[in-house]
Design a protein around this nucleic acid. Sequence first.
RNA 1: GGGCGGUUAGCUCAGUUGGUGAGAGCGGUUGACUUACAUUCAACAGGUCAGGGGUUCGAGUCCUCUACCGCCCACCA
Length: 889
Amino acid sequence: MSQIPPQYNPKETEDKWYRFWEKNNLFSTKINPSKRAFSIVIPPPNITGILHMGHALNNTYQDILIRYKRMQGYEALWMPGTDHAGIATQNVVERQISKENKTREDLGREKFLEKLWQWKREYGDTIIHQLKKLGCSCDWKRTRFTLDEEYSEAVREVFVRLYEKDLIYQGDYIINWCPRCKTALSDEEAPYSEIQGNLYYIRYPLKESGFITVATTRPETILGDTAVCINPKDKRYKDLVGKLVILPLMNREIEIISDPFVDMEFGTGIVKITPAHDPYDFEIAKRHNLEFILVMNPDGTMNSNAGEFFGMDRFKAREAILEALRERGLLEKIEPYKYSCGHCYRCHTIIEPYLSKQWFVRMNPLAKSAIEVVKKGKIKFYPRRWRKVYLNWMENIKDWCISRQIWWGHRIPVYYCKECQRSNTDGIVVSKIKLDKCPKCNSVDLCQDEDVLDTWFSSWLWPFATFGWPKENKDLSYFYPTDVLVTAPEILFFWVARMIMAGLEFIGEIPFKAVYIHGTVRDIEGRKMSKSLGNIIDPLDIIEHCGADALRFSLIILSATGADLFLSEEKFLLGRNFANKIWNASRFVLMNLDGKLIEADLSEFSRKEKLDLTEEWILSRFYSNLKKLNKALDNYRFSDAAQVLYQFFWHEFCDWYLELAKLKIKEKNTQITLYKVLRETLKCLHPFVPFITEEIWQKLHQSLGISEPQNTSIMVQSWPQVQKKMINKVTEERMQILIDSIIAIRNLKAHLKIEPQRRIHVLISTKDRETEDLIKDNSSYIINLARLENLEIAKNLKKPESSVSKVLKSLNIYIPYKGVIDISKEKEKISKERKEINQRLNCSISKLKDKEFLKKAPKELIEKEEEKIKGLRRILLELKKLEKELNEE
RNA sequence: GGGCGGUUAGCUCAGUUGGUGAGAGCGGUUGACUUACAUUCAACAGGUCAGGGGUUCGAGUCCUCUACCGCCCACCA
């Protein structure tokens, strides 16, 4: 097999096999009554995204599951697709047109949307191509996009159904507003982070005389104050309640009220109330029937209610207002103050709490059954701890603001009829189909709501809308509920919880039976990977340099169940080296297999009794490990599964069996065992490292001249069955005795400083008859693997003079060294070495005593020095021991 | 402030319902190009399992307290 190179080259094979799989329709799925369905849905990546490490991890998990289940004989569907990512995509295209100095308003809604679709056609599939490079075996013919016409129908259907059940309502509310994106954001989309700001102490003159001082971080909102509030328990200000103050700069009279929410300890204990610009103030205002005054425009500039500050940007206005207050002597003091406030998750602009009319979904009624199914265990979380997190959130759920003031997305299916409004109704019509005239009064003076729906309002329907719901269809009943959802923790609330609610509400059935939540990918320091930190490791780079298999395997074996993953580029060498090991072990087997000898029926072979201990052993080990592997995969313990494969293939099959097999490579039993174990192990490895296993699979059959139908691929082979009869603990224990003996002899040789390849005489004394037979029958293995000249075996042998020994459970090993090593020369060498080491030791110790060195040297250097001393002391101890042993002569 | 999780070898982590001497990978040290592989092979050295207390014949594993670290949620101007 000289044509097989000693190093695996992923670049040459990966593309080839992916195309092969696609060409032969191996990914495609259909309703198959003779098979059970296994299905998962992809967490739809957003179309602006490119494959990052988190995706790679997430999709590798899913591909492992799908390939595993497919080989187990399930009709395994992995439903792929993308979501339209409203704000993100719109931002990308807005940035694009801003290069031509245009805004979306310049283009108008229709033209702008055209641009968006054009962008989608050009770049929207990027991530799909990247997933293919990773090896994902999705049924691509079913690829869905959340803005597909069919999918959009589902979205409108859901809106109408919820509206008719009074679960959707329109309301005034303080929402998170991004002045840059000019849209409302849900709480989840406006993460809080700390900023360094100031706390401004401002004097509000009392109408009668004197003044009070309030503290605020946002002085620009003063203009919209409609009250000042104190805690009713606050004795300092008891008499103030009900009195009037003059609002600075606006000269409006506002009342002092009291409400228990005020914290007496904070600031001055007096709070200004700005109902239209603060969620808490909004609540208070409702309780006290205060006026709501908006002082800002949607773009973050001050509006006409802001008097002389009209038109200014909110932060410019802040400065101007502070200046004006200072002039009037109303600015008492400024203290630096750290506080946290919401930031837009897309553009990081500080969000503005803003009063506006939005659409909401009432979540409490939906949450009820979604809590139930998790409590009853119908949906299981892996790892289980996420169950609590989920329940905790669901039990405190708030209504969901679903309208967004952007254009890219599902337009809200609500129409306002001017005519009906004139006759004193709300004039709202909700409709699945596009309306030209009002169904109530036939008026054509009708316009659709300008806003679109939150992207998650379409994503939450993913598990069933992708099957064409609400149309009747058999796919849905065959594949739904799906089996498991694999996802990152960040979108537990955004998406997972909402999918559960949607599934129960609209299908009356859970959307998936299990939720596997994996860890976050971080850099080696534990920071999230992000562009701004510049600590990104690009999975495509890793694929380029090490191969997709290496990427996949490294990620999986490094990720403890559900724990975060700390990555650096070197860590991918683990997978690369393993792939290379698979390659070379297979190459060795291929080089030595004789097709004529293999033709024997494998099932007949496994019933044979005449197997050598080593054959029995490797087969037993294979099935023992297969059992472990199945268990790990069934419990979503992916890294355990990878660990089992790694350990078995490398350290049992390669390190031991292949070495043993070299001694009898031409024997039929060896040949069949090699073939069988490699073949079955390749199948087990396939879900983890699909490309290399396919490549070897094909080569294996070619070289043996076993003709297979053209489309036979390893990915459609059946998963090995655990054969309990082949698992034999006694065989494993007996083999272990041989292995331990070989290790012990190597160990003793190293101890005596005898070169590993030098053949010597060794004695083994056994404690019982069985062990004696075992060693005698298999002495050639020991002689060859431990490199012996000859091996003397007997029961209860006495320890020869001038020998070293090692005691094992059922036998003793002796190595006589007289004549093997020159004792006096050896002693000389040792004393010389001791002197040298002592010198080095003293050198290091004196360094550590040197105060100058301690002052100047960095910590790492000192630690290294300490390590060095430890190491030298160890070597010294060893030498002393050896010297003593030699002196006993 | 509320919730969740973690603390085991230099690093990253296993350790399954408490039970034989505490494991792996990487890293380190030493040696070897042994006819598949130097992306390799062989050997070695590293741990009072964060700390205190308790339950038990027996605790890395269960309970409790403390310390430190991390994550999520809330958000008092």
